[in-house]
Write a protein that binds this DNA or RNA. Structure first.
Lengths: 152, 152
DNA sequence: CCACAATTCCCCACTTTCCCCCACATATTG
DNA sequence: CAATATGTGGGGGAAAGTGGGGAATTGTGG
């Protein structure tokens, strides 16, 4: 049961966005509509069903506290993780701070990414997409091991 | 039952800060509102429910006394640990010395970090955050083993 | 032991934010 | 084209956050 596909979405003046109808039923039965949003290093937001998030959070919390990289990740990811519930109309309210982080304006894009969803500002999304296509073509020689034998 | 998420909080002239409503009930039932504050090496404050703190304290006390790093950690953490209780309005009073250590002014940020909460001066938090986002992207090649195969 | 100062705590009042509900606009389906 | 479902916007009440006055407590110095 994975999320996939892309949706155009409006963010209203109060910071709310409507979850696409085709996800709602799934979200209600898989986690009672209980979601967690957090930030991503690429300046978009990540949305997890609560149970999925808890697995990740557990891993993060167990990281060594004296390691700088670990603390950094913990603060970014757990620090920004916010519990959300859908309202009566199937919408979620994105906290102002997270909207700012992702540069969200009126038009946003919601992208299914397996266990999670990503929320991008539309403009940022379009720009990044162009960069990636260029980057993938340029960097072909320099892949980590796990990508070397990936077959699409 | 972990703490997560971020809150903007005002510290008033008396050094008080209001615990966000969504944490209060949990704090009351899990530890009767009994908290411990101490300092962190990154110049923020750490807040633990008393039972959680006692576990940490036990670990710290057991560290080898002849190791310089150990003594340093013990003095920093145990030395600054202060018992707190929420008042009738769900606020805690931060001791002046700890406020100074963290450079707390009027605007602060409260961050859930699993078993503990962190309190940052807003300005410090914003600055550090920018540095981290940059650092995460720059240092991708140099991660500790436990982070190598982390999948978000 | 007393007086004074500083700090802490409790209470009240104000401001802001959030959340529930209703209403309309747009899209989809029969 | 009607009828239903989905997306979008906003008003108003409730709750949370914020600030300050004054009483009670603690601590200090005489």
């Amino acid at each position: 049961m994975h999320f996939r596909g892309i949706n155009n979405i409006a963010v209203d003046a109060k910071g709310r966005m409507a979850m696409p109808a085709r996800y709602r039923e799934r979200l209600l039965e898989s986690c009672g509509g209980r979601l967690v949003v957090t930030v991503d290093q690429d300046h978009c937001l990540l949305v997890y069903p609560l149970p999925e998030w808890e697995i990740i959070e557990e891993k993060l919390i167990s990281l060594p506290s004296l390691n700088k990289q670990s603390r950094l990740l913990q603060r970014l990811l757990i620090g920004h993780a916010t519990d959300l519930e859908m309202d009566g109309q199937g919408r979620i309210l994105l906290p102002a701070m997270l909207r700012e982080y992702a540069g969200l304006k009126k038009k946003a894009v919601l992208i299914g990414q397996g266990k999670k969803l990503e929320i991008w500002d539309e403009e940022t999304w379009v720009q990044s997409q162009e960069e990636w296509v260029a980057a993938v073509q340029a960097d072909e020689g320099d892949l980590p091991a796990s990508l070397e034998d990936l077959s699409l």
